[in-house]
């Protein structure tokens, strides 16, 4: 009872409390959730084909349009596959880096690694994307490098693969994939390193002490305890890839992605309901992903 009394707020105190809480609540409630709800609402309207005006009546026509047109399904599948590929690759690359940062690096090396991971994020996103287009271009640094390493054949072979290949790295899904992984890698490394740093050294010693070889300790102790960090990181890489429209429009093959579709529908096409419906897709996909992660026990160690 004594504990509860401390938290019960009365009179003046309650007033100040409300005063302090109001701005963040307003921000979260109106600016954030409010606009999201309006967006959701828009997706249940439809556009009048003839006048191109939005009819503010509840209808599922827009969702029907979204889910029945093969071109739209293509866009969703394409974006989803890219997001999955980017997330898996980022996780595989980030894990050893994060493990080294968290467990093996000395204080100086660790600081250096943190700066190294975050430094690219301090540069403009657009500059990096356009730089990558130059790097990956037909006569860019990448192909120059392949040529001098005598690997031009391998590059040509990769680009000859149907669907993911193309005339150059800069205009293929392979190139787009590389840029996505590069862009979102820090968002995977940082939460992973944070999760790994929280694993007490004594747990690893206990595992070794009980007879586990290093590989077994990794599988049975390190990996399960890093899962929350892996989940957090993958939510970043997954959702950032699902929603991005700049990278697919600057680098890669001409196929559309969800973000580009949203951009186009709300802009030039003026079909706000369809744009809204498209932007609901990543929300649903991430929701499903989170449910799956929870089902698999990713948050058990929290």
């Amino acid at each position: 009872m004594a504990g509860r009394a401390e938290f019960s707020l009365q009179g003046r105190q309650a007033f100040y409390f409300a005063l302090l809480l109001a701005p963040p609540l307003l921000w979260l409630g109106i600016v954030y959730l409010g606009s999201l709800l309006t967006l959701l609402l828009q997706s249940f309207y439809a556009i009048d084909e003839f006048t191109a005006r939005i009819v503010p009546e509840f209808t599922l026509a827009t969702y029907r349009q979204l889910l029945t047109q093969p071109a739209h399904i293509d866009i969703i599948v394409r974006t989803l596959l890219m997001a999955v590929a980017v997330t898996l690759t980022a996780a595989v690359i980030a894990f050893p880096v994060a493990l080294y940062m968290a467990r093996y690096a000395g204080p100086r090396t660790k600081a250096l690694f943190y700066v190294g991971v975050m430094l690219p994020m301090w540069t403009s996103y657009l500059v990096k994307v356009y730089a990558w287009r130059l790097i990956l271009a037909r006569q860019g640094i990448a192909s120059w490098g392949f040529e001098h390493l005598g690997l031009m054949g391998a590059l040509d072979q990769a680009l000859a693969v149907p669907v993911v290949g193309g005339p150059s790295l800069a205009s293929s899904y392979i190139g787009m994939f590389i840029v996505f992984v590069y862009m979102w890698l820090p968002f995977m490394i940082l939460p992973l390193a944070a999760a790994l740093e929280r694993v007490p050294a004594s747990l690893l010693q206990a595992s070794a002490d009980l007879g586990a070889r290093p590989g077994q300790t990794f599988r049975n102790v390190v990996l399960p305890l890093a899962l929350p960090g892996l989940a957090a990181g993958s939510i970043f890489t997954f959702s950032l890839t699902l929603g991005d429209y700049i990278i697919p429009s600057v680098v890669g093959a001409p196929g559309y992605f969800i973000g580009m579709m949203v951009y186009q529908q709300q802009g030039t096409a003026g079909n706000l309901p369809l744009a809204a419906a498209f932007s609901v897709v990543p929300i649903v996909l991430i929701g499903l992903y989170l449910m799956l992660a929870k089902r698999l026990g990713a948050f058990d160690a929290l």
Binding site: P200, S202, L203, Q205, A206, S207, A208, D209, L210, G211, A212, R213, N220, V221, P224, L225, G297, D300, A301
Partner: peptide, 20 residues
């Protein structure tokens, strides 16, 4: 010899029980 190959076991000060 690494710890996993020694026939010795330890009770840790913080117990080091696996939380998961």
């Amino acid at each position: 010899t690494p710890p996993f190959a020694r026939n010795v076991n330890t009770v840790f000060q913080d117990y080091a029980l696996f939380p998961h």
